[in-house]
Computed example of a mutant assay.
Amino acid sequence: MAKVETVKRRSPRKVKRSPIGASPGTLIADPAARQSALSLTLISPDECKFIGNASLRDVAESCAGWPVIWLDCVGLANVELIAEIGAIFKLHPLAFEDTVNTGQRPKVDFFDDHAFVVVSAIDDALAGRYEQMSLFFGENFVVTFQEREGDPFGPVRKRIKANLPNRLRTRKADYLAYALIDAIVDSYFPILESKGETIDGIEDEMLSGIGRHQVRELHELKRGMIVLKRALWPLRDALAALLRAEVPFIYPETKVYLNDTHDHSVRLIEVVEMHRDMLTGLIEMHLSLSQARTNDVISFLTIVSAIFIPLTFLAGIWGMNFDPGASPWNRPELLSYYGYPIALGMMAVIGFSLVGFFRWKKWL
């Protein structure tokens, strides 16, 4: 029995939304959300302090004593905790609704004394899984919310610990917010480089010989490019909005660095578009090569059939039952002593003649 190949279908991501008619700013936890855990980073020009498994009391006590604080909340299950964080930093409730209801479009919103940024970060490169990261920042604080453990902020934490001179220790919270956003944007580059190498490998493989698995791989890669485009295009617009913003908690010297991150996002979009065009071309090339291969097979079978048609005709005539004794017209050559080799020789001559004719016409 032939082995049936099963295709694993990817279940679509369900975007959680508030119930219809709910009051603006209503926080409803997703049943699948992870339990919330807080980590606190306290920053000053002279020192820095990290508090894992921080409590709200730690957060409230640190707000007045440190120039810049960074609160990182991993997991969005505890909406009461999230609401209390909003109360401590006086964050807008509408932004918290977008924080809890993940799957938002990357964007930036400005309020009186803080900004709210939503970005899509690569959570699992191999599985192609993304997560929403929400970031609030004001004059002296940055608050980040993640769906689950794992983030690209490791280099930023190392830079905070590094010795002076250290811009992350001497500048305001807007520079820390820039560093976190820049880390998220730069995390896309290794993924795109890996996908580019995969595309080049499939192209080289197709030039050697086409296979059915290549079509599936190309379509999966193209679907991944669409997801990347959906995340990067609005991210570019959000970074442009940060650059244009005239708010007191974003300083002009930070906008110079934000402009560099904006350039990175533009480069990423260009790479995504280039990969999409390459994938579209490879899919079309695969279809063309498959059709050409099919045409070659059909042409070969047609030539083989054309060669055997006259041979079958002769074999059919000589295979008919006649009685030469009844009439001289009833196939007297059936009694020929060399009839069998003569018939085979004639068939061979006709067959080779047709092959030579097809070669002369360059059909073979």
Rank of each mutant, 00 (worst) to 15 (best):
A2F: 02
S11G: 10
R13H: 11
R13Y: 10
K14P: 06
P19A: 05
P19H: 03
A22S: 06
A22W: 02
S23H: 06
P24M: 03
T26H: 02
P31S: 05
A33V: 03
L42Q: 08
S44K: 06
P45Q: 04
E47P: 05
C48A: 13
F50G: 12
L56K: 02
A64D: 09
G65E: 12
G65L: 11
G65H: 09
W66P: 03
P67V: 08
W70R: 07
C73Q: 02
E80Y: 05
L81Y: 03
I82D: 00
A83H: 06
E84M: 07
I88F: 02
L94A: 03
E97D: 01
D98L: 03
P106S: 05
V108M: 01
D113R: 09
H114T: 00
F116P: 00
S120L: 15
S120R: 15
I122K: 15
A125G: 15
L126V: 15
Y130W: 15
Q132G: 05
F137R: 00
F137P: 10
G138T: 01
N140I: 03
F145I: 04
R148V: 08
D151W: 13
F153W: 11
V156L: 12
K158C: 15
N163R: 15
P165H: 04
R167L: 12
L168Y: 07
T170P: 04
K172S: 09
D174I: 00
Y175K: 08
Y175M: 07
L176N: 03
A177D: 07
A177T: 04
A179E: 08
A179D: 07
I181L: 15
S187L: 11
S187T: 14
S187I: 14
E193Q: 11
K195H: 14
T198G: 11
E203W: 00
S208D: 12
G209V: 01
E220F: 11
V227A: 15
K229C: 15
R230F: 11
A231W: 10
L232D: 10
P234W: 09
R236V: 12
R236M: 13
D237I: 13
A240T: 07
A245Y: 02
F249V: 00
I250M: 03
P252N: 04
N259G: 13
H262L: 13
H262G: 09
L268M: 14
E270R: 13
V271Y: 15
E273D: 14
D277K: 02
L282P: 01
E284F: 08
M285I: 07
L287T: 12
S288V: 09
L289R: 10
S290Y: 01
R293P: 01
R293N: 04
I298K: 02
F300V: 10
T302K: 00
A306C: 04
L311H: 05
T312S: 03
I317G: 00
P324R: 04
S327V: 13
S327W: 14
S327N: 12
P328D: 01
Y337V: 12
A343K: 02
G345A: 11
F352M: 11
L354H: 00
V355P: 02
V355N: 03
G356P: 08
F358D: 01
R359D: 06
